[in-house]
Amino acid sequence: MNTPASSQYLLLFRGPEWDKGLSPAEIQDVLDQAMTWFDGLNRRGIVRGTHALQRSGCIVSEQRAQMVTDGPFAESKEAIGGYLLLELDSLDEAIAAAKDYPGLNRGITIEVRPISTECPIATRLRQEQEAVAAA
């Protein structure tokens, strides 16, 4: 797959249930390692934003008159527990940064996504319209 080049990458941390079965000391150890990892990125000056997310929240959809449901964000392996926005030159650099995250050893998965400067759907639509106009 060809991943587009970008100057910013979003890291999404999936699987907030990694702490289950660990002792408080073990959890603290992972948190300390994660903080050391984060401090390293911060010192490089590449962190553009980061937040941990509460395990609560809602899903809003149009089905059946804009149903709002409380999301079970703690139970799923797919659930997103936080994000980190990094400024880097390439996807490889973003993957290298993600690989060093100590939570990976505890079952967390990191989704690495290049940020687009404009909505990719709008880009595609414009290109299609230009192609039609040129034809």
Partner: peptide, 18 residues
């Protein structure tokens, strides 16, 4: 405070030491 569209592509990093 912030907003970004994402490209459809990307990678998943997992497992011990990524």
């Amino acid at each position: 405070k912030g907003a970004n569209p994402l490209y459809g592509e990307g990678k998943l990093v997992s497992g011990a030491n990524g």
